[in-house]
């Protein structure tokens, strides 16, 4: 398993964990009536905003940890961290999937808004579509690593 393939696998695990945790947190906050007041959108934005730096830090920590565990498990004293042309090509294909899914989700959210859906639900749908785009892009990359370009 190459360095970039390991990173892709870690990205999938982190994405699933973060998305699951965010879904639980937003649902819990909604249940507690935190989004009922006049500052509901500001509360939602503050909740979602800090997910970005936390996600980056968790991903970096998980990549380092996974690489250490992988090196120990495979008894590889000189693990390779090379990124090559195939990694870049697979990265572009994955990014394409991410963009298509996120764009479709954004468009769907705009249509829902035009049809009268609530702002809060639309914002959640946009956030979910970006998370789904990231996940599906990583899954597409993993599939390309396993089955070939």
């Amino acid at each position: 398993m190459s360095h970039e393939e390991r990173n892709t696998l870690v990205a999938i695990l982190v994405n699933l964990s973060m998305a699951g945790w965010m879904t639980w947190r937003i649902a819990a906050m909604q249940g507690a009536g935190r989004f009922d007041g006049p500052d509901a959108l500001a509360v939602w934005a503050r909740t979602v905003l800090w997910v970005i730096p936390v996600g980056i830090i968790v991903t970096i920590a998980a990549v380092i940890l996974f690489n250490i565990v992988f090196a120990i498990a495979t008894r590889d004293e000189n693990p390779s961290f090379v990124t090559d042309e195939r990694d870049r090509l697979i990265g572009i294909q994955g990014m394409r999937v991410t963009l298509v899914v996120a764009s479709a989700g954004f468009l769907g959210a705009l249509v829902a808004l035009a049809l009268g859906a609530g702002t809060f639900a639309v914002l959640n749908a946009i956030f979910a579509s970006f998370a789904a785009g990231d996940l599906l892009g990583s899954l597409a990359k993993l599939r390309l690593y396993r089955r070939g370009l």
């Binding site: 393939e5 390779s80 090379v82 090559d84 195939r86 370009l149």
Partner: peptide, 10 residues
């Protein structure tokens, strides 16, 4: 050649 072993395999 400066690529990963997986690329040579592929």
């Amino acid at each position: 050649v400066g690529v990963t072993r997986q690329t040579i395999v592929a």
